[in-house]
Amino acid sequence: MKTYILRRLLLMIPMLLGVSLLVFVLVYISPGNYLDVLKAQRDIPAEFIAKKERELGLDRPWYMQYVSWLGRTVRGDFGESWSYRIPVIELLAQRAPATLALSLTSLVFAWAIAVPLGVFAAVYRNSIFDKLSALSAYAALSIPEFFLALLAVIFASQWGGFPTGGLSAIDHDYLSPVGQLWDYVHHLILPTIVLGIGGAAGLMRVMRTNMLDVIQSDYVMTARAKGVPGNVIMFRHVLRNAINPLVTSLGFAFSGLLSGAVLVENVMNYPGLGQLIFQAFMRKDRDVVMAAVIIGSSMLIIGNLIADILLAWVDPRIRYDK
């Protein structure tokens, strides 16, 4: 297992090199660059722009720029954000906790709804409950996330009760510690629901299908022949086998922890990484974009690895040694 994990981690190096090269080239060949906003203003002299270009290294050919970016990055220096004028790492570290909190709460929210609903829908198959939950899942999957986010903002602005956006209230600093915590939670509720509903619907359908598959399997009949009571069959034999694919999906969910909420963060004005990265793309703030891509790809590769390890952990048939 150790050698397997080590091999997978080593494979990250060529993958990240490829991804970074590709994204760097794409950013380079897409029209315009960071200084376009300056160029558009007539009162800024051309010499100033040329000086800026030299400063940022934008006057050199793209492969030279890539090599110098790569040289810095492998030493752990992700560069400086051109628009915020602070190191990229510092910028990301400021925003990451908000996104991480939102991703985790929506993941927990989705699981807490999806697993019990999927199990009940399968156990009471073809009942009214099953049909209603299938209908709601269908509806939830059909509504785009950003639209749901818009609805939530309208809901908050029309009926109150929830903030319409942001991470904390304007009087946050004057609140007691408990009040500050509640303030954060209060601001998290709507984005969590918006982000969690789509995930819950998908998970629920997977859970229901897996349960039905396993319920019909021969070993469940074996358990019934042994005289195992129905609820023990459901938990020991059915649920434990049916949940395998979902446990694996936890690994993939890891990769979305820092990047899964771009649309919702933008619509709901939630100051997380998603919003930052989106703006960086729009402004062509290159080093921020590159750092975000590297972190996102690393999380995806590690998430895949975690998924594979989890699979081996839950399923005794899967072993990676030899």
Partner: peptide, 24 residues
Amino acid sequence: FQDPYNSLNPRLTIFKIISEALEI
């Protein structure tokens, strides 16, 4: 059962499969 491949729960050890009936 007919199918010896699917009639044993893949997540349980042989001991658990056999002793489950004993427990009951």
